[in-house]
């Protein structure tokens, strides 16, 4: 409401200034819109000398440190550490999002302001960077700064360190129980139903959606009565162009695929640096699921139809975005 008042004032001001009389009649009016337009929390910073902002940052950092080392912070039952995610993990991923991949986010308004929703996205890129970028996209671009809770493969939770970070960043195992629990709690859940088939597909198959598992995500969304938001990610396919797959080595290491890219494993650790492609993340029109009867989640025909509908929508959006794309890197 404050904004609605501010805009006419700002527009009026230049027109009335020449009349002179009006300006003097309402001297406090011009500064007011300025203060209102700037977020109120910046107000003390603007008034204090230049050192104050720095001081506040140090104070904030120290109080953060104090809470962390005394253990006085909260995690939810999935192990999601909101404070750590907001203050540390997000800040680590943000440069990658803003500067490196220069992600363009479209259709963020398709994500509901509140309540549960299931975001279904395509999966690609050899390493699941697309999931992490999706998380940053939702948090930084959504007006309500919503947190995306990703469903990750069991491999993530088998690896030391990775599982710990994944849980703290709010990810959990891709299983119906966890997904339903999160959706019923009103969380935003992200799933990539292609799984390893999508992320580990050869470069030649890029932007060809793989099979969507058994479509379990649809029945979960139906049971929870939450909308499904299809999401298409363009750009992630080219970060590690996978030209080969050392299957024997993968089997030996117990991983689903062992990627061979033009630079990896040829250049060793340098080969693990992703190519700086330009990304686009497009959220599509939500598909409502609350109109179905309670037993609809048990209907395989309906499940297949809805799965296909979601899949088609993502695939079409992918093709459209690819046509619009000028180049892979710009």
């Amino acid at each position: 409401m404050a904004d609605a008042k501010v805009i006419p004032f700002g527009e009026d001001r230049p027109r009335r200034r020449p009349s002179g009389r009006r300006v003097r009649a309402a001297p406090p009016a011009p500064p007011e819109p300025v203060v209102e337009a700037v977020p109120p929390l910046l107000e003390p910073v603007a008034q204090k000398p230049a050192g104050a902002g720095w001081e506040r940052k140090v104070a904030g950092g120290l109080s953060f440190l104090r809470r962390r080392i005394t253990g006085e912070y909260e995690v939810d039952e999935f192990g999601y550490d909101k404070e750590l995610t907001d203050q540390v993990l997000m800040s680590l991923m943000r440069p990658l999002f803003d500067k490196y991949f220069r992600v363009e986010v479209k259709g963020i308004e398709n994500i509901p302001k509140e309540g549960g929703a299931l975001i279904v996205a395509n999966h690609s890129g050899t390493l699941p960077l697309d999931g992490l970028m999706l998380q940053v996209a939702v948090h930084d671009h959504h007006p309500a700064q919503r947190h995306l809770r990703l469903l990750a493969a069991d491999l993530v939770f088998m690896l030391p360190v990775v599982n710990e970070l994944a849980r703290k960043a709010g990810h959990t195992l891709a299983c119906a129980e966890d997904a339903q629990r999160l959706l019923e709690a009103g969380e935003l859940v992200g799933v990539m139903p292609e799984g390893f088939k999508g992320i580990g597909k050869p470069f030649g198959d890029r932007y060809k959606l793989q099979r969507f598992g058994r479509g379990g995500f649809v029945s979960t969304a139906l049971r929870a009565g939450t909308p499904i938001v299809p999401c298409s990610i363009v750009g992630a396919e080219e970060i590690y162009p996978m030209v080969g797959n050392a299957k024997t080595l993968a089997r030996l290491l117990g991983i689903p695929y062992f990627p061979i890219t033009p630079t990896f494993p040829l250049l060793g650790p340098f080969g693990a640096v992703p190519l700086p492609t330009k990304w686009t993340i497009q959220f599509g029109e939500p598909i409502a699921t609350d109109g179905y009867a309670a037993e609809a989640a048990e209907d395989p025909m309906l499940m297949f139809n809805l799965t296909d509908q979601v899949r088609e929508q993502i695939q079409h959006t992918l093709y459209r975005l690819l046509v619009q794309r000028r180049s892979v890197f710009f």
């Binding site: 001081e55 104070a59 904030g60 953060f64 203050q87």
Partner: peptide, 10 residues
């Protein structure tokens, strides 16, 4: 450092 870290609102 002459800053008060204990009661800054996160």
């Amino acid at each position: 450092l002459n800053v008060d870290g204990s009661d800054v609102d996160v």
